[in-house]
Amino acid sequence: MSLDEATSTTHPHAGILPGKPAPFFLAPGGGEKSVVFDTLFTVLLTGDETNGQYDVFTCDGNAGQIIPAHVHLDTNEIFFITNGAVHVWMDDENGFKRDEVLTPGGFGYVPQGVIHAFRIESADSRILGVSTAGFGRFFHEMGKATDKPGIPAPDEFFAPSIEQMMSAGQAHGTIFRPDYSFLDD
């Protein structure tokens, strides 16, 4: 189903995924896609398909800016790098404060309540993400729906307004921390 066909139902991505626990396949580049800043986020599974257990998504981009520091109140998140390099920062504010540049096969786990940020460090990078169910569609609320796979071209970049970011954050238990910078360390 194209994005245009899906738009005629409840949300721009309706009908791309089954919306219930059922076996299915996606072709390369398939899934619910949204551009957030200069990055493509593709939701492959949601809690609708996993009986409320987890979401799976990818994040594709080139070297860019750091994603703002933020905290997920109820979401655990996994970063697994399949291509390129991604710098991940974490601070649990209880003694664990580290950052790593992850390359293919590199893995990072961010439990709920941990301040974190990331920055894609090289061209053609991909993160495979897994999160607590219900979080994956945060990217859709933060971004602009697209049906085009691959890393967005500069004319496809989408910068959400502060209001859109705050609304997405509120809907998905995410608090942005403009008071916190990993780059000042």
Rank of each mutant, 00 (worst) to 15 (best):
G150R: 06
H140W: 09
F118C: 05
P160L: 06
K97M: 13
G150Y: 00
G113C: 05
I127F: 04
A117I: 01
G150W: 09
G113D: 06
M142P: 00
P154C: 02
D99T: 12
G143Q: 00
G150H: 06
F107P: 02
T103E: 15
E141R: 10
G95F: 08
I115P: 00
T103N: 13
E156V: 02
K97V: 11
A153F: 05
P149L: 05
D147S: 14
P111E: 13
S125A: 12
F118H: 08
G134Y: 06
T146I: 07
G143D: 03
S161E: 04
N94V: 07
F118N: 08
K97D: 11
V101M: 13
T132W: 02
V114F: 09
S161M: 08
D124K: 14
G136S: 09
P160C: 10
N94L: 13
A159H: 13
V110R: 00
V114G: 02
K97W: 04
S131E: 06
P111K: 06
K148V: 06
F118A: 06
G134P: 01
G143T: 00
A133S: 14
V114Y: 03
P111F: 08
D147M: 07
L128C: 11
F96N: 14
P160N: 08
D124L: 06
F138S: 02
S122T: 12
R119K: 15
A133E: 07
A145Q: 07
E93T: 14
L128D: 09
E100W: 15
F96Y: 14
V101Y: 12
L128Q: 11
S122G: 04
G105I: 10
F118D: 11
A153T: 09
F135M: 11
G134A: 07
A153P: 01
P111D: 11
T132Y: 01
T103D: 05
P152T: 07
H116Q: 10
K97F: 10
S122Y: 00
N94H: 12
S122A: 15
T146E: 12
V110K: 03
D155S: 10
V130C: 14
I151Y: 05
G105M: 10
